[in-house]
Amino acid sequence: MPEHDPEQELGPKFTSALQNQAGAEAGLQKTGLAQEARRRVRRRRQGWSMAAGAVLVAAAIGGVWSLVGGESPVATGSSNTSGDSKAAAPNRSFEGVMPSPAPDNMCPLEHPILKAAGPDALQASAGLDLATKVTGLRACRYGFAEGGTGLLGQEVFNAAVAQQVVDAIKVLPERNPDLPVFKCAPPTAKPSEAIVLRFDTAAGVREIWVEYDGCESAGFYTGTHTYGLYSAPLKLFMTGSVRPSGGTYLNALKDW
């Protein structure tokens, strides 16, 4: 009968115990790795939830600003080749925009009255029929004196004033009997200035020439008729740069 060796019995037990311990440690290691993996997944999910919440808040804020007509609180920019973001440049589309064209009723710098023999030279086709409806007026003051020839001033009036001027002229007699009659030499007969009234009508611009200086004649000339010079119409348009400093017949009127 073989001799009993205690070490032989303990060997398998030690081996089994070591194997069990190694398995436990491996299990614990696997369990720890699984726990770490789950912890990381939870952190990622939390990060995604926070990011999604931030996006929703930003979208909500942007929507509120859009509803009230304000600008978005988030600055926008354009990326360049280096990846840097720059603020959008302000809109300067208004720069370089040309002003609106001048209306057709602008006072011409070279007007026929500058070369006309007198106010009665106004052609009927260019003159205003006082029965015509007018929608606007530009008063143009021209000078004839040496060194002062040309446009001296102009003023614009609306339809209401334009019609008032026409209504004030068409009731006047052909001549104002209160004005003096002058006898003067030809050099002093010519006026130093006169006014052209350019009315807007459906048929285009029509004119009345106003003579108030010199010593030859005075009045409102329509191309077909002459109306005497009175203060009532003059007060309506002789304003600003169109108001003369004086005139032979104006000085005689006194209340213009």
Rank of each mutant, 00 (worst) to 15 (best):
N158D: 15
N80H: 12
I195E: 00
R42S: 03
G27P: 03
A252Y: 05
L137D: 06
T222P: 00
L137E: 08
F237T: 05
R44D: 05
K190V: 14
P108W: 10
V165I: 10
S93P: 07
A168Y: 02
S93G: 09
L152N: 09
P6K: 02
L172N: 04
D178R: 09
T135M: 06
P173I: 08
G204L: 02
V205K: 04
T239D: 07
A37K: 14
V196G: 04
A139C: 06
R141Y: 00
A218D: 12
L18F: 14
P191E: 08
A75F: 09
Q8D: 12
R38L: 04
V171C: 02
S78H: 13
L229P: 08
C215E: 08
R39H: 14
T222E: 02
A218H: 07
D200P: 02
A102P: 13
V161F: 10
V68K: 04
S49M: 10
W256F: 05
A126H: 07
N251T: 03
V161Q: 15
G96W: 05
H4G: 06
P12T: 10
Q8V: 15
T248S: 14
A121Q: 12
L56K: 09
G214L: 10
L109N: 15
A22K: 08
G214V: 08
R40N: 11
A202N: 07
L253H: 06
L128R: 06
A131M: 08
G147N: 00
P112H: 08
M50Y: 13
D129L: 03
A194F: 03
I208N: 01
L33N: 11
P101Y: 10
L114C: 09
F199M: 11
D255R: 06
W48P: 00
H4I: 08
L179R: 07
P180A: 05
E71N: 12
R39S: 14
D167K: 02
P173M: 08
G53Q: 12
I169L: 03
I195T: 05
A252K: 10
Q35N: 03
T248A: 13
A131T: 14
G69F: 10
G148M: 13
I195M: 02
V166T: 01
Y212M: 14
P99T: 13
P119G: 13
R138F: 10
G83T: 05
G23R: 05
P101S: 09
R38P: 01
G150N: 01
G69D: 07
V64C: 11
L114D: 10
G63H: 04
A75Q: 11
N91I: 10
E110N: 06
N176P: 02
P244W: 01
V134P: 01
D200W: 03
A160I: 13
Y230Q: 09
L28Q: 12
G204Y: 00
L67H: 06
V181D: 02
R138K: 12
A218E: 14
S85K: 14
V181C: 05
R138G: 05
A160G: 09
V156I: 11
P6L: 03
C184S: 06
M50R: 14
N20I: 06
E3A: 14
G27I: 14
A252R: 11
V165K: 10
V205F: 04
A116W: 09
C107T: 04
V181S: 04
